[in-house]
Write a protein that binds this DNA or RNA. Structure first.
Length: 457
DNA sequence: CGGATTTGACCTGCGC
DNA sequence: GCGCAGGTCAAATCCG
């Protein structure tokens, strides 16, 4: 990914004090005030030209809005300075006052320029991330299509860590598709994304044949459904996620004495979204919630607000999963423990919010499960507050070094089970695709519109 | 009284 | 084909 470092641009800048010395040395002593902000030199043409070339090499955009903005500011300051230079040098106090005004103007412009530069950086980063996510998703879907029935060695498939779905692995579990790090075989799928969207246009629980809620065709490929499972500590029987649910069944699943409850979204008639809730057999305080399906109705604003940000986080999560092999993640910070299970026919992403990232122990994953922790650099957008991490901090995180930031933010996130649900929803929305009937908000977060609404269930 | 929950029966898919 | 297990239905029950 192109790494646009604002510091590179700041190296172009030269102190306006030196500029003033060149322009009007007589007033410089007076104007040499303590400027708390590094000032920008718009006029060092040779230097700027040189460095601009470097920048342009890195960003070969013809019409860079950032540079256009800079040129406008240059013109403004040019005008102001020209006025200043026409002042008679004999009138020292008058000149000093003008110079002071000029300094204020410069400071204002510098602030504005820096702000625009930062904004530009953010936008570029977001664009890069979206592009990257798109390509990863495209590859992912292509692979899912190509290998839905490919048999793999299934030794050790039965594993108690397969979250929520405690039933013994069936033969379908062996039909595992590779994940994005497997770059083989994109041929023969001219537009896998469109295919995926078509496949995910209707979703329902797998083995159900309910006449009322049947929305899937048996002939469709098995990877049309995606489950997102969330493990979170909660004494409450349910995690509030901003949607309304109605319980329609309960079962004692084999291997877990805790009953599994089945819920259906009741925010709209015929909404296909279901969720299962079950306590973990190993730790009764852990509540495992599994979602499937896309909402076919608008979501409450309070639900979509968080959903949008978590969608971004989920996209980054998925992107991370594709760019690096699972093994390479083993030493990276966890935010939270996220596991992508390829167990067909329902690939399941599991977010384990019960694991303290600083005392991290990798939960034994089933065979053919890729452990794909969220990368630390996804933090800034997780809570819907797009904080721009200082490059240094991000770099530290990239270097897999624990930082106080990682610890603090992870703890904050992990302590809020609602976040995990929201994140799960977002991930499901990305993998599961979009049914095309959702409104704007719902299309960003099709799954469950998670929020921090209390008592919304 | 209406909506939500409970619970036994039923359906379906999978393994043997 | 049979048995098992997961998932769903729908009548009964509960609750505000």
């Amino acid at each position: 990914m192109e790494n646009h470092d604002p510091r590179h641009e700041l190296t172009l800048l030269r102190s306006t004090d030196s500029l003033r010395q060149e322009l009007n040395p007589t007033v410089n002593a007076k104007v040499h005030v303590h400027s708390p902000i590094p000032e920008v030199d718009f006029f060092s043409l040779p230097k700027n030209t040189d460095t601009d070339n470097n920048v342009n090499q890195k960003q070969p955009h013809q019409e860079d809005p950032h540079h256009r903005h800079t040129n406008v500011l240059k013109d403004l300051v040019d005008t102001a300075l020209n006025l200043n230079l026409t002042c008679p040098t004999s009138d020292l106090s008058k000149s000093a006052a003008k110079d002071e005004n000029l300094r204020i103007l410069l400071n204002t412009l510098q602030k504005e320029l820096l702000r625009v530069q930062e904004e530009n950086c953010k936008l570029k980063t977001m664009l890069d991330q979206i592009t990257k996510n798109y390509h990863q998703l495209q590859l992912f879907v292509a692979l899912q299509k190509q290998k839905p029935y490919q048999k793999m060695e299934t030794n050790g498939m039965m594993c108690g860590q397969h979250l929520l779905d405690a039933r013994p692995r069936t033969k379908l579990d062996a039909k595992v598709a590779s994940f994005p790090d497997d770059t083989s075989g994109q041929e023969g799928h001219p537009d896998p994304v469109e295919d995926a969207i078509e496949q995910s246009s209707s979703q329902s629980w797998g083995s159900s044949k309910s006449p009322k809620f049947e929305e899937s065709k048996p002939s469709e490929l098995p990877f049309k459904k995606t489950r997102v499972s969330v493990r979170a500590r909660s004494e409450a029987p349910l995690i509030s996620d901003g949607c309304q649910w109605r319980k329609y069944g309960q079962k004692i699943a084999k291997g877990n004495p805790c009953p599994r409850a089945y819920y259906r979204c009741t925010m709209a008639v015929g909404c296909p979204v279901r969720k299962q809730v079950q306590r973990c057999i190993e730790d009764k305080t852990v509540l495992i919630t599994t979602y499937e399906g896309n909402h076919n109705h608008p979501l409450p604003p309070s639900a979509t607000a968080m959903a949008n940000s978590t969608s971004a986080a989920a996209a980054m999560f998925l992107s991370s999963s594709g760019s690096t092999s699972a093994g390479a993640f083993s030493s990276m910070p966890y935010i939270p423990m996220a596991t992508l299970s390829a167990s067909a026919p329902f690939p399941t992403i599991t977010l384990d919010m019960t694991t303290n990232p600083m005392q991290l122990h990798r939960v034994p994953s089933p065979v053919f499960t890729s452990s794909l922790p969220l990368h630390a650099s996804t933090f800034p957008q997780l809570l819907g507050h797009p904080i721009m991490l200082p490059h240094k901090v991000t770099h530290l995180l990239d270097q897999q070094q624990p930082s106080f930031m990682t610890e603090t933010m992870t703890a904050a996130i992990a302590s809020n089970p609602n976040f995990t649900v929201a994140l799960a929803a977002a991930i499901s929305s990305i993998i599961g695709g979009n049914d095309g009937n959702n409104n704007n908000a719902a299309s960003v977060l099709p799954l469950n519109g998670a929020s921090i609404l209390p008592g919304s269930t």
